Amino acid sequence: NQASVVANQLIPINTALTLVMMRSEVVTPVGIPAEDIPRLVGMQVNRAVPLGTTLMPDMVKGYA
């Protein structure tokens, strides 16, 4: 099963992502693939992302 990117903490709206904010986990539904974590660093979320939430492509500005 493919691992997805999951929020390791509450990520406030418009926050630029850092490695410490994300972890990989096998979840359903599948979100952004864990191998894209390096690409996500520095990108901003367009909404608040609660701890444990799977990051979906539409949550990250410029990802989709």
Rank of each mutant, 00 (worst) to 15 (best):
V41F: 07
G62Y: 14
I37R: 12
I32N: 01
L19T: 07
V45S: 12
D58V: 11
Q44R: 07
I11Y: 01
L19R: 11
L10K: 12
P50T: 11
R39H: 14
G42E: 05
N46C: 01
V27M: 14
P12K: 06
M43Y: 11
T15S: 04
L51S: 13
N46V: 04
P29G: 14
V20A: 12
A7Q: 00
N1V: 08
V5Y: 01
L10M: 10
Q9Y: 09
R47C: 02
I37W: 06
L40R: 00
D58Q: 06
V60T: 03
A3M: 06
L51N: 10
M21P: 01
R23D: 04
V20D: 10
A48W: 09
I13K: 06
V49T: 05
P57N: 05
Q44A: 07
P12A: 08
Y63S: 05
Q44M: 15
G42T: 07
T54W: 03
G42L: 06
S4Y: 05
I32P: 00
M21L: 06
D36T: 05
R39V: 05
G52C: 02
I11N: 00
A48Y: 06
S24P: 11
P57C: 02
V20P: 13
A3T: 14
T18C: 03
D36K: 12
G31D: 00
V60K: 01
A64S: 12
I32D: 00
A16S: 08
P57D: 04
V30Y: 06
V49H: 02
L55F: 09
M59R: 04
L55C: 01
T53W: 14
V45D: 01
M21K: 04
I11Q: 01
V41T: 06
V30E: 06
M59L: 09
P38W: 04
L10V: 15
D36W: 10
G52S: 12
A64H: 10
A64R: 01
P57Y: 14
S24N: 06
G31K: 02
V27R: 09
N8E: 13
K61V: 12
N8T: 14
N14S: 09
I13D: 08
L40A: 03
V41S: 06
V5P: 03
A16L: 14
L55A: 01
M43Q: 06
G62H: 04
L19F: 07
G31A: 07
M43N: 13
V30M: 14
R47K: 14
G42R: 06
T15Y: 09
A34Y: 14
A7R: 00
Q44W: 13
L40W: 02
Q9N: 11
Q44T: 10
G42A: 05
L17F: 15
V45Y: 00
T28W: 08
P38G: 05
Q44P: 06
T18Q: 07
P29T: 13
I11E: 00
Y63P: 15
V5M: 03
S24W: 09
I32V: 12
L10H: 06
T28G: 13
Q9G: 09
L19A: 06
L40G: 00
N1P: 13
M43V: 05
V45L: 10
V41L: 09
L51R: 09
G52H: 11
V60A: 03
S24F: 06
M59Y: 07
V26I: 06
Q2W: 05
S24R: 12
R47T: 12
Q2Y: 13
A3Y: 06
N46H: 11
E25A: 14
L40I: 15
L55D: 00
V6A: 03
G42I: 01
T54I: 13
R47E: 05
P12T: 10
R47V: 11
L17T: 01
E35D: 09
Q44N: 05
V45R: 00
T53A: 11
V60W: 02
G62V: 08
V20S: 15
I37E: 05
M59E: 08
T54A: 15
A16E: 04
